[in-house]
Simulated scan of single mutants.
Amino acid sequence: MTPENRAAYWKANVRLLFILLFFWFIVSYGLGIILVEPLNSIQIGGYPLGFWFAQQGSIYVFLVLIFIYAAAMNRLDKKFDVDE
C-alpha cells in the first residue's frame, strides 16, 4: 500500500468515526439531556420517552452504530484492497 493510499484510508476511517460519534452524541446528549422535558410528554411502555433515551436509547443506538461501523469498514477495506 502506498503512503498516499494509507493516508486516504486513514482519513476515510477517521471521517467515518467522527460521523458515527456525532450521531451517538446527538442521541445520548441531545435527546437524553437537553430535550428531555419535551420528550417526557410522550410515553413508551409507561415510561417517559426522555427517560428512555437517557437510559436505554443511547445504548441501543451505540450497538447499532457498531454494526454500521463494521459494515462500513468492510466496504472501505475492499475499496482500498486491504480486506481479509
Rank of each mutant, 00 (worst) to 15 (best):
A71D: 03
Y47D: 11
V36L: 15
S41Y: 10
G46N: 04
G50A: 11
L17S: 13
L63P: 14
I42G: 01
T2G: 13
W10N: 15
N13L: 15
I26L: 08
Q56A: 15
L16K: 12
L76V: 02
N13F: 15
E84F: 06
I33W: 08
W52Q: 15
V82L: 10
Y60N: 11
V14W: 14
K78W: 00
P3V: 09
Y29P: 00
I44Q: 01
D83P: 00
D77E: 08
A71P: 01
L16S: 00
I59Y: 12
V61F: 10
I59R: 12
N13M: 14
L20C: 06
D83K: 00
V82R: 07
M1N: 11
P48Y: 04
I44F: 10
Q55W: 12
Q55R: 15
E37N: 07
Y9A: 06
I34D: 09
A71M: 01
W10P: 06
F67L: 06
P38N: 04
A71C: 02
G45L: 00
A70I: 13
P48S: 10
G30R: 10
P3I: 13
G45S: 03
Y47L: 12
P38I: 03
P48G: 12
E4P: 09
L31K: 06
G50N: 06
I59A: 08
R15A: 13
P3A: 12
Q43V: 12
L63M: 14
F25R: 08
F51E: 11
D83N: 04
S58M: 15
F53A: 03
A71W: 06
P38T: 05
Y29S: 06
L49P: 13
P3R: 07
I42F: 03
E4W: 15
W10Y: 10
A8H: 04
V61Y: 04
K11D: 06
L35C: 03
I68F: 04
V14M: 05
Q43N: 11
V36W: 09
F62D: 09
G30W: 09
D83R: 03
